[in-house]
């Protein structure tokens, strides 16, 4: 009777043997006192480790971790001020862009531009598609510029550029808020835990 490799006994203990190998090794253990004793030695080690008690940190540990968590992020006040300032900057920039566009185009053409953008059934759909694709393919931005120019004259050509830039900045802003807000909000109440 050939004894199995000792690695097979370890694998049996770790439930890492193939099912058919398990049957063979177990059959061998029933017949071989030497291998059975070896396997029981491994089981004894496993049992001794499993029976080790769970250890507790000092009573001050929890408080120290919570204090460290509160310090792990910028203070909520500073974070809120930073986000507020960024929001104001984006809003101001967008408002300035709209004001400049309106003053250069004149009220009628400016309103017509927004009507076109707002009505999916009309030509604005083409412009929107160009702007959407411009995110991936810069050539579409040029197409959007030409399209706007053909509709509203050369003064309007920069509008899609402004719209794309404003959308880009707004996207960055929203990404920052989305990625930081949960932890920022979580930090906000740490001191009250």
């Amino acid at each position: 009777m050939e004894c199995p490799d000792i690695k097979a006994l370890h694998e049996l203990l770790d439930r890492a043997l193939e099912p058919q190998a398990v049957v063979g090794v177990e059959r061998h253990l029933r017949a071989c006192a030497s291998c059975l004793a070896r396997y029981q030695g491994l089981e004894a080690v496993a049992r001794a480790v499993a029976a080790l008690p769970s250890l507790s940190p000092s009573p001050a540990f929890r408080g120290r971790v919570l204090a460290a968590l509160a310090a792990a992020r910028p203070s909520p006040r500073r974070l809120e001020w930073g986000l507020g300032a960024l929001g104001a900057l984006v809003s101001g920039w967008t408002a300035a862009a709209v004001f400049l566009a309106a003053s250069r185009l004149g009220p009628d053409r400016f309103l017509r531009f927004w009507e076109l953008l707002a009505d999916p059934a009309r030509t604005s759909a083409i412009l929107k598609a160009h702007l959407a694709k411009a995110i991936l393919v810069p050539g579409h931005l040029l197409a959007a510029l030409r399209f706007t120019e053909s509709l509203l004259g050369p003064e309007a050509a920069y509008l899609p550029l402004q719209a794309a830039a404003a959308a880009g900045i707004a996207l960055i802003f929203m990404t920052m808020v989305a990625s930081r807000a949960p932890l920022g909000a979580a930090t906000r109440n740490w001191r009250t835990i």
Partner: peptide
């Protein structure tokens, strides 16, 4: 989602 007590719960559960 902003509930800071939730992490304290995880800390309590797993610190040992």
């Amino acid at each position: 989602g902003g509930d800071s007590g939730a992490f304290a719960e995880l800390l309590e559960r797993y610190q040992n």
